[in-house]
């Protein structure tokens, strides 16, 4: 079961909107696919993002995955703890393992993303 209060992308990011700002991370499925995360390359605060723009990378020992912005906006904060403790992405992907926060440019962007049930259906499809 994935958290119900989040929206999801096909690239396995989650986003939690709270008024004008939103928090972004990767899903439990994504962290399991990657394995032990060893490094997260974070975007610079102030970076202006378009939908689906590459904003960083997340690395395990033998894989690299790009992080895309699920919506448009401006980066207002990044999770500095990940520099010393990238394992938070594995241990608590929906909590301590969040990656960055942004100021939403267009709340309508959220509408295009998947709900929890839609994302679960998609995950079920990937199991095969």
């Amino acid at each position: 079961m994935v958290p119900q209060n989040l929206r999801y992308t096909k690239d396995h990011e989650w986003i939690l909107a709270d008024g004008d700002t939103a928090t972004v991370g990767i899903t439990d499925f994504a962290q399991k696919q990657l394995g032990d995360v060893v490094y997260v390359e974070l975007p610079a605060v102030g970076t202006v993002l378009a939908v689906h723009q590459t904003i960083g990378t997340i690395e395990s020992v033998k894989a690299v995955s790009e992080i895309f912005s699920p919506v448009s906006g401006e980066v207002v904060e990044t999770n500095g703890r990940l520099a010393d403790a990238p394992e938070a992405v594995n241990q608590d992907p929906y909590g301590q393992g969040w990656i960055f926060k942004l100021k939403l440019a267009n709340k309508g962007d959220l509408e295009a993303l998947m709900s929890d049930s839609e994302y679960e259906t998609r995950l079920a499809g990937l199991e095969h």
């Binding site: 060893v38 690395e59 395990s60 020992v61 033998k62 894989a63 690299v64």
Partner: peptide, 12 residues
């Protein structure tokens, strides 16, 4: 730090 290398990151 093999993620810098071609066998993982390929063209990047």
């Amino acid at each position: 730090l093999s993620t810098r290398e071609q066998h993982i990151r390929r063209e990047k």
